[in-house]
Structures are given as structure tokens and as C-alpha cells.
């Protein structure tokens, strides 16, 4: 069996040191080694985006990376984005606009949307739709996901006040 590799990663602000098999995918490291099951696996061909997390501030598909590649990196998962009572504007947008139904695509969709707004704070509808090309949702028809991202963009630009009840 090939040697295990020692890695150090910071996930949601917490530093972790682990010995991992080289073939361990980042998504399985997050879900199984660290117990962060908010990041999901929806496919085995790198198409669905359910596994999207932020690696050094950029959205990536954690199913298309080995954990060893994240050595020395800073990761943010859905669990580290915001918590109930202190939601990120994108999380708030998904709640306010009913941007989710079964919730399975949601963590990846939210992480991709945050990445979009980091790069382009006031996207047009077409830009939102293009930026979400790597995230599949079978429930919502994307209608309210688009509205959720628009809500978050407005909120981050200070155009919307505090949400009603959170």
C-alpha cells in the first residue's frame, strides 16, 4: 500500500493535521475524516457541483481534488459560511426567496453563488445563470435560486435591511 501523506489544512478557521491515503478525495476527507457532511456528493463525473467548497477563497469541486492537494490550504465549507442567527447574505437569500426544496444541491449552490458575488458583486440575470452552470438542481427550476442570488447581491450592496426573522 502506498505511503500515507501528512497534511495540514485549515477548514472553517480550524487547523487540522491528518495522515491520509493519497487517493482520498477532498470531499471524502471533509465528510468522513472531519465529519463535515454539509458538502454533498451528487455525481461521479465532476458535473453536479453538490461538492463545491472554497479553496483559498475560490469555489472548487471537492470531488475533483485529492485531499493531499489541499495541504497547506485554507478551506471554507457551508458549515463555515454562516450559522443560524448569523447567516451569510447568500444563505439568507436562499431562505427568503425559497431557493431550495430538497436542499441537496443547496450547499454547493450557495458556495458557488458566494464565489460569483465575490468576483462580480452586481451580476445580471444572465451572468448569474452562466456562473451556476456547474451546479445542477433538480427541484427548483433555478427560478428562486436566481432570485436568491439577486437578493444577496442587493443585500451585500446595502440595498436591503435586516431580514424579518433571523
Amino acid at each position: 500500500m502506498p505511503d500515507k501523506v501528512q497534511i495540514k489544512v485549515t477548514v472553517n478557521g480550524v487547523e487540522h493535521h491528518n495522515e491520509v491515503e493519497p487517493r482520498l478525495l477532498l470531499v471524502h476527507y471533509l465528510r468522513e475524516t472531519l465529519g463535515l457532511t454539509g458538502t454533498h456528493v451528487g455525481c461521479d463525473t465532476s458535473q453536479c457541483g453538490a461538492c463545491t467548497v472554497h479553496l483559498d477563497g475560490q469555489a472548487v469541486k471537492s470531488c475533483t481534488m485529492f485531499a493531499v492537494q489541499a495541504d497547506g490550504c485554507n478551506l471554507t465549507t457551508i458549515e463555515g459560511l454562516g450559522s443560524a442567527g448569523n447567516l451569510h447574505p447568500v444563505q439568507e437569500g436562499f431562505w427568503e426567496m425559497h431557493g431550495l426544496q430538497c436542499g441537496f444541491c443547496t450547499p454547493g449552490m450557495i458556495m458557488a453563488a458566494v464565489d460569483l458575488l465575490n468576483k462580480n458583486p452586481q451580476p445580471s440575470e444572465a451572468e448569474i445563470r452562466h456562473a451556476l452552470e456547474g451546479n445542477l438542481c433538480r427541484c427548483t427550476g433555478y427560478h428562486n435560486i436566481v432570485r436568491a442570488v439577486q437578493y444577496a447581491a442587493d443585500k451585500m450592496a446595502g440595498k436591503i435591511g435586516a431580514a424579518a426573522d433571523d
Binding site: L36, T37, G38, T39, T77, I78, E79, L81, G82, S83, A84, L87, Q91, F94, W95, E96, H98, L100, G103, T106, P107, I110, A164, D165, D166
Partner: peptide, 12 residues
Amino acid sequence: KRVEDPRFITGT
């Protein structure tokens, strides 16, 4: 707004 959403949008 849905009562089930907080757990889904926070990954729980």
C-alpha cells in the same frame, strides 16, 4: 419562509 430551511442552508 420554510421552517426546514435553516438546517439545509447551514449544511446541517
